[in-house]
Design a protein around this nucleic acid. Structure first.
Lengths: 243, 243
DNA sequence: CGGAATGTTGATATGCCTCAACTAAAGTGG
DNA sequence: CCACTTTAGTTGAGGCATATCAACATTCCG
């Protein structure tokens, strides 16, 4: 019976080299499985968690709370991602993490992780690298939301999610599931729902991709990449997934 | 004769506890001093550096290159910051780092840093924490540029820079030096120069702060904080600087 | 089947970008 | 040190794009 943490091994191997001992240590980590309902919070801004989560299944998201209950979504996390690895070294959460659809996570006590780093420093470095790639994704989001027009901005988001889903084996042919709505897309890209809707239509008309009822479908990857100025190098994968 | 790396010790102590041995190891790191002219690049997108820099003096910035030579500035870095610590674990730079004004940096070989982490894991954790705070600042920039209107957006940038300058002892009374121009502010906040100029005037008229010829002056900190929805908790300082 | 949530569409207004002309400041060389 | 050049900042006019609002359609869920 393989550990559910195997997904983390796979994820870390996207950018880091792990030897057999690293893998054994990683997958031997004590953990607790937890199920989250759609919309449920895993952690909230202000919390001081003693565990870190690995997404086993489903889509999680980080977000800032704005006045009036609005949100700014910051990033999305799929199988193998650690949406709150930062809590290992930063006591207080400066943002929240929620489940977009139904989500399964494995909760690993910080103590166990830190002890593992002691035994296998290379494991710590791999997770450090993972957090650095997170940061790289945040930087790209700054540029995306600040410097690109709506169509390219949305296209870029779709490129990133499709690319990452592919790398994580979550793509089926030319589509992947993204259990999010127009409101969430708007709160990710900083646009109104109306504009999200109209931009979605532009993308569909341009025959590059379509997003409907939580299903992202890519018709013309190269065209979408071009139109979005998507350059996957910021994801720092050792080898790109087949697309 | 104290090591120029003392500024890094001070910086890390803002969020981490270092004992005498940590400090000794840190300040004993081999390094090279380098001077940068205004506008000069320290590293470029695509580089594979073997050293990481500590800002000793001046203001550095990270940026993405956009088509047509335009830039998206991602963050600013002052005394004690490590604007490219990520290169320790990520081979290829996904963004560039440049000097805004004249800048002095200390370049530390990655090898030396990694060896230091081996001897004093707590040092590695402190720098890891530093990179996590970087990420937190990036997240805040996403929210700032995506969800706040121009006046609050600019106010927030000024709050952050003033707060961080204060923490680093770079503030003189109610002002600090920021060797940047309107173009750069626009390329940071995602607004046109015209809007930058007019927003600057709004802030001046509201008697909260003024920015002229590289000099940021704060008239009404509490007012500026309110108007910008600035909450410094994302900077994760152990104790806030006096303001 | 009914109600709530989500998505769609059109009309309107405003706020930002663009462009262009101008002013002020800073840097340079005689 | 002053005249000149270059760069940076300022202001106004105009148009376009996106936010806002409101009405409506569709899908989801109990």
């Amino acid at each position: 019976m393989p550990s559910p943490l195997r997904v983390l091994t796979r994820k870390l191997k996207e950018h880091s080299r792990l030897n057999a001992e690293d893998v054994a240590t990683l997958e031997g980590l004590s953990h607790l499985l937890r199920h989250l309902e759609p919309g449920e919070d895993l952690i909230r801004q202000g919390d001081n968690p003693r565990v870190s989560a690995v997404v086993i299944k489903g889509l999680a998201a980080r977000y800032h709370l704005l006045s009036a209950g609005a949100r700014q979504y910051l990033s999305f996390h799929m199988t193998g991602d650690m949406p709150d690895s930062q809590s290992l070294f930063i006591e207080t959460m400066d943002h929240s993490v929620c489940a977009m659809g139904a989500v399964e996570v494995a909760l690993i006590p910080h103590k166990a992780l830190l002890k593992a780093f002691e035994r296998r420093p290379s494991l710590g470095f791999a997770i450090w690298r993972e957090t650095l790639i997170d940061a790289s994704i945040f930087r790209e989001a700054i540029t995306n939301n600040s410097a690109r027009e709506p169509r390219a901005r949305m296209g870029h988001l779709f490129c990133e999610l499709f690319y990452r889903a592919s790398a994580s084996g979550l793509r089926v042919a030319d589509e992947c599931q993204l259990p999010i709505g127009l409101v969430q897309i708007g709160e990710t890209l900083g646009m109104s729902i109306a504009t999200v809707n109209r931009t979605l239509q532009q993308l569909r008309i341009s025959r590059t991709c379509s997003f409907e009822r939580g299903r992202l479908q890519i018709f013309d990857w190269d065209g979408l990449v071009r139109l979005s100025q998507f350059n996957p190098s910021y994801l720092h994968q050792r080898k790109p997934p087949p697309l």
